[in-house]
Structure formats: structure tokens, C-alpha cells
Amino acid sequence: MKSLNPPSTRFIARLDVKGDQLIKAIHLEGLRVVGDPQIYAKRYYEQGADELLYIDLVASLYGRNKLKDIVSRTAQDIFIPLTVGGGIRSVEDVTELLAAGADKVAINTAAVANPALIEQVALRFGSQCMVLSIEAKRLGEDRWEVYTDCARESSGRDVIAWAKEAVERGAGEILLTSIDQEGTRKGFDTALTAAVAETVRVPVIASGGYGQPEHINAITHQGSANAIAFADALHFERETIASLKSYGAEAGLRVRSLL
């Protein structure tokens, strides 16, 4: 039986960065420079985004994490939850980012290499802080594989099994990015999101593929997503947070009021 007062669906602005530049990709490849992430982050905050998501797409590839300065600047004048990911390899990295102003961390590559890191972060900072980032690539009908290092390396792990294991280890949320749909504007992978959402008891953020209003209805109703991350549509001003929330309300979702 569904709750009479389901929680609001969160509308999240996703900002992928490389160094100090906001970038956008297709299938997490072919990076295109968009501009100063600080300017865009403030814009989305003022538009009423429920959260901001910063991902350094190349951090794991280069074995570094340079998000601290961006996070510190952002946290000075933006007062909504901020999730940060990319190149996070240790509890010490998490400590540094939280001290800079992040509220949550999203970990992919290092968690796959060392699943115990999930438990370490959850025990130290709480499950609500530990977001498992999954880059998923479709292998066939109802089969997806976990990829790491900005979708460059296959892990051999099944997405559904990995999501279940990570939550058992303490992950409090899952950021689920469809490599196949990311940047295409052709819609989210609703089957992927639904399969994960049906398996775990924690919120699932759907990322990758928004192109038109009906995609919001599909990913929340058929896909059972608790939150949606938007990038391309916002960066290139095809939509605003307000217009996206309006589409959500029309689809019957509870949305948080605008600022």
C-alpha cells in the first residue's frame, strides 16, 4: 500500500567538472567545456534546485581529487545539500570534503576496488553521507554491468547485485547513471532504475538521458526513482528547475516549493 503522503521527488542539478571547468559529455565521453561551475551552481540554487551534485569525471583516471576548492567556494553562498564525487579513495578524502562544505560523498571506482570503504565511510559519518555511485552499462535485456573510471573500465560486477551488497554494507543512497542514455536526450533507462529501486531500501537518484517532460513521468512512475539529476537541459538552458518541477507536478509528483 502506497503512502498517502509520499516524500517529495528531489530535483537535483548535476555538475560534472574537469579541473575548474564545468563540462558535459555524451555516454561520459567527448567532454565539452561549458563554463565556470560556480556560476551555474548559484543559478540552479536560485532557481530552486533541491540539491547540487558535483562529480569530477576524470579524478579517478588521474588518481587525484581537486574538488575541495570548488566545494569550499560553493558552500559559502549556497545552502542546499551538496553531494560530491570523483577520486574519493579514503576516509581522509571524505573528511576533507565534508570540512570544505559537502554534505554527502558519492563513491564509485574506489568502492568497487575496496568495498570495505563503504562500511568505513558509513560507520564514521553515517549512511546518509555515503552515496554509492554506479555507472551502469546495459549488457542485454535486464542485465547491466558496473563500470568505473568514468565509464572506461568494466568491473565484471552485476549492477543489481552490487547495489544490494553496497546497501548491506551501509550505503544510504544510490546515484545511478546510465552510460547508454547519458547525454542522449532520449530518456532515462527506466528498466535499470526500476530494477535497482525494487532491490534496495534506500533512495535511488536517476541520472542520464532527460530530453522532454514525459521522461520525468516515466522515470518516477515506471522507474520508481526517488530523485532525478539533470545536467544538459539546465546547462544549455533548455529548461529551468522551475519548468522541470512544473512538469513533475503535472505528472502527479510531490515537488518541493521553489525559493
Rank of each mutant, 00 (worst) to 15 (best):
V196D: 00
V71L: 07
T199M: 07
T220D: 00
Q212L: 09
L57E: 00
S127F: 14
S243D: 10
I80R: 09
D103L: 05
T220K: 01
D77C: 15
E168K: 12
S246W: 06
A113T: 13
I12Y: 02
I80W: 10
K186Q: 15
L52Y: 05
V121A: 01
T190V: 15
V91C: 02
L15P: 02
V131W: 01
E250D: 15
I26P: 01
D56C: 11
V196W: 00
D232M: 04
R43G: 07
A197L: 04
V159M: 02
I39Y: 05
V58K: 08
F188M: 08
V91S: 03
R256I: 06
I174T: 00
T193L: 04
R201S: 15
D158G: 09
D16Q: 01
V146K: 00
L57A: 09
D158V: 06
V17W: 02
L123Y: 08
A100Q: 04
N108H: 11
R10P: 05
E165C: 09
T220V: 13
F125T: 07
W162I: 04
H27G: 05
I12H: 00
G140D: 12
C150T: 06
D20T: 15
D232T: 10
G19C: 10
Q128R: 15
A106C: 14
E165L: 10
D20G: 13
V105Y: 02
G63H: 07
G211V: 03
G170D: 08
T199W: 03
L175A: 06
K2W: 10
N114K: 15
T199Y: 04
Q47E: 14
Q128C: 11
P115S: 13
E135I: 00
V112M: 06
N108D: 10
T9K: 08
V167P: 01
M130H: 02
R201G: 15
S243L: 11
Q120D: 13
A242P: 04
P81K: 10
D103H: 13
A136C: 05
S72G: 12
L258V: 13
A233I: 08
W162C: 06
I118A: 02
